[in-house]
């Protein structure tokens, strides 16, 4: 459903993504692994068109994303959960969710505030609190809930385990499993191999913007050399 073909992205003169190609199929949770600076966030941002790839094509459900504005990409059904959380700290939880709300999509059960509060009970308790009053973990939950309000057909999760306590990371894994069970495909950018293995079906490893591995976790474990070369463990 998502297909990247020879994508090259630059920041100024720095070449960040180098002929990156991969696909993501319906109902699949794929983890994009790599070290700091490998290009994971840039991959996610390129899909969202928050940074514009110089060459290559990105196709989602038959739609070419290149040259679309980020809001058009979002409206096609790609839900983006950014790395630094970026919740609206002056808005309440309910208002944050409202910003993310989009019209229901054909063939998908629409998310509502109530159904999201079932997955994120902490948020319900604090629904009228401002974003800045939340803990890091709660903020991370809120960003995911906010994006789900847009009824996405594909979720891009950029390093959700970054900077939150290990206990919360486990909760996060459970949450992502719940989302996965609803049939929503996820592209999970992650440094934490352990966390990625818990939730993802397939691993893609990138290094310096190039794809180095694309396959199952089982195969990855059978080849520790790949893991040692491209992931800092």
């Amino acid at each position: 459903m998502l297909e990247l073909e020879s994508v090259n992205t630059y920041y100024g003169k720095a070449h960040i993504l180098n002929d990156l190609s991969f696909t993501l199929n319906e109902g699949e949770v794929v983890s994009l692994l790599g070290r700091n600076g490998a290009g994971k966030t840039t991959t996610v941002k390129s899909i969202m068109q928050l940074v514009k790839p110089a060459t290559g094509s990105i196709v989602f459900d038959g739609n070419h994303l290149n040259r679309l504005a980020p809001h058009q990409v979002a409206r096609l059904g790609i839900g983006y959960v950014p790395e630094e959380r970026r919740i609206f700290t002056d808005l309440t939880i309910l208002e944050n969710l409202e910003v993310g709300r989009q019209a229901p999509r054909d063939g998908l059960e629409p998310w509502t505030v109530e159904s999201l509060f079932k997955i994120f009970p902490n948020l319900e308790e604090r629904q009228n609190n401002r974003g800045k009053a939340l803990s890091g973990g709660e903020q991370q939950m809120l960003t995911i809930a906010r994006t789900l309000m847009g009824n996405p057909r594909l979720l891009l999760l950029d390093e959700p385990s970054e900077g939150i306590a290990p206990v919360i990371v486990e909760q996060m894994a459970a949450t992502i499993m719940q989302i996965k069970e609803s049939g929503l495909p996820v592209l999970l950018s992650e440094q934490n191999l352990h966390f990625a293995r818990l939730v993802a079906d397939r691993a893609i490893i990138i290094e310096s913007g190039e794809k180095k591995y694309d396959g199952s976790f089982a195969e990855l474990e059978a080849n520790p050399s790949i893991r040692d070369a491209y992931l800092s463990v």
Binding site: A69, P70, H71, P82, R86, F88, D90, L91, R146
Partner: peptide
């Protein structure tokens, strides 16, 4: 609500489909 959100982080508001 959208206006206030955009006051804080307009790129994120765009990435959420607005």
């Amino acid at each position: 609500i959208l206006v206030r959100a955009a006051t804080q982080d307009r790129e994120m508001v765009g990435a959420l489909g607005v």
